[in-house]
Simulated assay, not measured.
Amino acid sequence: MMRSIGFLVNPVAGMGGAVGLAGTDGKADEAIRRGAVPRAADRALQALSPLRGEEIRWYTSAAPMGRDVLASAGIERCTVLHHPATPTTAADTRAACRAFLEAGVDLILFCGGDGTARDVLDAVGREVPILGIPAGVKMYSAVFAVNPAAAADLIRRAGEIPCRESEVMDVDEEAYRSGRLTTHLYGYARVPFIPERIQGGKQVFEQQDEERAKDDIAAFISEVMLPEMLYIIGAGSTTARIMERLGLVPTLLGVDVVRNGEILVRNADERTLLALLDKHPRAKVILSPIGAQGFVLGRGNQQISPAVLRKTGLRNLIVVATPGKLAATPLLYVDSGDPDLDREVGDSLQVISGYRIAQRKRVIHPD
């Protein structure tokens, strides 16, 4: 039996990440002013291209919310049910989803971030399964495939695999931009589920033992830091503790750059990082995976782009996490936006989890 899928793209999703805006909701114009380029269409194209020739009846919104991406993927036979405004808005996402629902689709496939997921849920609730192609900045909701290749695999097998009740999270972006992570459960959606193909929701770890572990990690990292070396330090409370150990004030949810014990740049964007690496080519990147989700790259740290990582070299990637976080995070993922770079990471990463203590964690590449 031929499946039917409603497909839409939020064309501005994720634009704020590389330019240090920590999100794009209400900030698309500012992201463009800072030099951001659209990335959602490219992410959607990675998911759709392997589906060319599949027995799927496609419904979509007109360009730039879907029809153009289907055409680029070589999928010409589709029905346009919605024509968005210029510029597109959240109302267009909801209207397109309602049109898909009326057409009786088996699945709604969307490309965006947490804000797009909330708009889709508002329109369809639990009446039809949904699946997200990750293209936002943070993506704490558990309705996204771990990367575009995983989305393609899930679509091929939709109807044959079970659906899971998965969390859609509401993230306060204004609070996030000011360094406070404020989330709450927005609702539940039905999502086709295969382990290692769908990301989990973020968990936050604040137990007393975790705080001691952060201190131990910070003590070790501060001892092994080299003079004249550039340190690009990503978001999170564990990496923030390293900054505090150095006597520096961190940008909790941004990327800071440190050299010789001093901050060179706070809340750096991709362009700034690339310029600094031209001047200081000896550099290391310190990151912590998102708790329970396991993403080291591609969630909340798009400033540390494939171009940045190729300049630093993957051998200079340092991953840190507390034992509690690692116990709840059985697998690690990388979704930098460059599948070749992701594969170069290899099948495992060493994670520093205490003072001179490390664990090796498996890295999954669902492509």
Score class of each variant (00 low, 15 high):
Glu167His: 13
Ala123Ile: 00
Glu167Asp: 14
Lys311Tyr: 08
Ala327Ile: 12
Phe100Gly: 04
Leu81Phe: 11
Ala328His: 14
Ala96Glu: 03
Glu127Gln: 15
Asp338Glu: 05
Pro366Gly: 07
Ile161Thr: 09
Val363Leu: 14
Ser348Phe: 05
Gly17Arg: 02
Gly16Ser: 11
Leu277Lys: 11
Glu167Trp: 12
Tyr59Thr: 05
Gly298Ser: 04
Met1Ile: 07
Pro281Ala: 07
Leu331Ala: 00
Ile357Thr: 15
Pro38Ile: 06
Gly291Leu: 01
Ile194Cys: 12
Arg271Asp: 10
Glu244Asn: 09
Leu317Lys: 11
Pro289Thr: 03
Val168Ala: 08
Tyr140Ile: 10
Gly132Cys: 12
Ala95Tyr: 05
Lys325Trp: 06
Ala149Gly: 15
Ala292Tyr: 13
Val143Ser: 05
Leu297Asn: 03
Asp122Glu: 12
Ile286Leu: 06
Val345Phe: 04
Arg356Lys: 15
Arg259Glu: 05
Lys202Ser: 08
Val69Gln: 03
Arg212Leu: 15
Asp347Asn: 11
Gln203Ser: 13
Val191Lys: 00
Ile5Thr: 02
Arg3Ala: 13
Asp170Arg: 01
Ile263Tyr: 01
Glu165Cys: 06
Leu314Gln: 11
Asp25Phe: 13
Phe295Gln: 11
Glu165Asp: 15
Gly53Gln: 04
Ser336Asp: 01
Ala152Pro: 04
Lys138Glu: 08
His82Phe: 15
Ala85Gly: 10
Arg310His: 14
Arg362Gln: 11
Gly6Asp: 09
Trp58Val: 07
Lys279Thr: 14
Leu101Met: 10
Ser305Arg: 02
Arg43Glu: 08
Glu344His: 09
Asp342Val: 01
Leu248Ser: 11
Met243Trp: 14
Ala13Ser: 08
Glu167Gln: 08
Ser61Arg: 06
Tyr188Val: 09
Leu341Lys: 03
Ala62Thr: 08
Leu253Trp: 04
Pro134Arg: 01
Asp347Trp: 06
Val171Pro: 05
Asn260Asp: 15
Leu297Arg: 01
Pro148Cys: 03
Glu167Arg: 12
Leu248Met: 09
Gly261Tyr: 02
Leu253Tyr: 08
Phe205Asn: 01
Leu287Val: 14
Glu76Ile: 06
Leu277Gln: 13
Thr312Lys: 01
Gln303Asn: 10
Leu21Thr: 05
Asp25Asn: 08
Leu317Val: 14
Gly300Cys: 08
Ala62Gln: 14
Val224His: 10
Ile221Gly: 05
Gly74Asp: 09
Pro323Trp: 09
Lys27Thr: 09
Gly20Phe: 03
Ala91Met: 05
Leu314Trp: 10
Ala96Gln: 09
Arg33His: 12
Glu102Cys: 00
Ile364Ala: 12
Leu51Glu: 06
Ala135Arg: 02
Ser4Val: 11
Pro148Val: 02
Glu262Tyr: 00
Phe144Glu: 04
Glu55Arg: 08
Asp114Ser: 12
Thr24Met: 02
Val265Cys: 01
Pro87Ser: 03
Asp338Gln: 02
Cys78Pro: 02
Ala219Leu: 08
Ala292Cys: 10
Glu160Phe: 04
Leu309Cys: 12
Ala90Arg: 14
Leu154Pro: 07
Leu349Trp: 03
Arg98Lys: 15
Arg157Glu: 12
Ile352Val: 15
Cys97Gln: 04
Gly313Phe: 11
Val120Leu: 11
Gln46Val: 05
Ala22Tyr: 04
Arg266Ser: 13
Ile5Trp: 02
